[in-house]
Design a binder for these strands. Sequence first.
DNA 1: ACCTGAACACCGTTCAAGT
DNA 2: ACCTGAACACCGTTCAAGT
Lengths: 223, 223
Amino acid sequence: MPATPRSRRERPAKPALTREGIVGLAVGILRAEGLHKVTMRRLAQELDTGPASLYVYVRNTAELHAAVLDELLGTLAPPPAEGDWRERLERVLIAYTGMLLEYPSLARSALTAWPSGPHYLDLIESLLGLLDEGGVPRERAAWGVDLLLQRATATAAEHAGGDSRDDWDALGDALGEVSARAHPHIAAASGLLLSGAPEARASWAFQALINGIEHTAVPEPHE
Amino acid sequence: MPATPRSRRERPAKPALTREGIVGLAVGILRAEGLHKVTMRRLAQELDTGPASLYVYVRNTAELHAAVLDELLGTLAPPPAEGDWRERLERVLIAYTGMLLEYPSLARSALTAWPSGPHYLDLIESLLGLLDEGGVPRERAAWGVDLLLQRATATAAEHAGGDSRDDWDALGDALGEVSARAHPHIAAASGLLLSGAPEARASWAFQALINGIEHTAVPEPHE
DNA sequence: ACCTGAACACCGTTCAAGT
DNA sequence: ACCTGAACACCGTTCAAGT
């Protein structure tokens, strides 16, 4: 009797037609080919079925993307144990941003289709824990996590799609050509607006956010 | 001789096949039917030509969207003249956010395809002017505008696409079901995380941002 | 140069029908 | 219930050919 043909083993076994199987397959395609290849049709093809079959397990493409993101969040390193709370908070946020920057189109998707999976909750828990450690009042911390997570997601999302370099250049040109008459403040700040290494800007932005959250009172009847 | 048929005048005259004509038509379709109808094919159809013709005037869909946004930015009210600088700054940002909230998918698009049109420059000029009035150091102001504009854009973008209400509910459920053992900080803050009227949160967020920008030093060699 | 029809290579989602 | 093929109603962009 011949053994199971080798070719069967060259690729990972065809995933099961279950939510886990679909999401896992989606993660694989994302890693190998990018989010634009993670389509219902492609997934179905790989599972030897029609696209309609997937709708039993996922509501739509947006929900699938959110599930994929939560899966990736699970691969993030745990929050650092050493350093000042501000520094550790920044490191968690930079790690999250970094992961999203590997898949900017997923970040773009996450901005609209909010994740609510277990790993996303872990991330929120880390942020709240660190803010609490820093003595930031609970209400400010609660409202603040939205600011921090949104900054991370939006920053990564900006790199999705078309050459963001082109846009940067275009804006740079526009800022440079500005007349000191019509736009005096831009003219005065033009060198500064796009200055600095991305890392330095990212770090500054998170510290500014943290400072702002720490020192801005939430309105009274925070119901 | 018969006059020009009336039907010719029932709709606005067919725009010219120029960049202005295309962008203007796009704005009209956006207002009437939403961004998802602003497609190359639809535009071409309305101009009695094939989609290929448009590529002489716009590089691609993303660039078209950016042009549309800049056009809409031109309809924004001028910055308010009364009140404390912080208050006026917030009002400019809220007005911008409000406009984007009318077209969340355009906001989503703006996050990736940066506008660099004249009206966008005016907006940057306003922000820099108000920060300067508040005595915020130039370098902080320059880096800060990115934070402020990104917050506005991302907040509006979150409302694009699928029911953001569903996601909110899903996250609310997930946060509520959390175990105090695994996620103590979430459990303690669960009521707070999604609390508050959208307006109150938006206002707080901008004030926190402004405070953070004002009080966070930019690193030394700000090259 | 500008303009075009046709083609390439796809999409998400729904529906009626089967098991 | 779960699963499916086929259909509906589209996309953006490129290319070769015309004027």
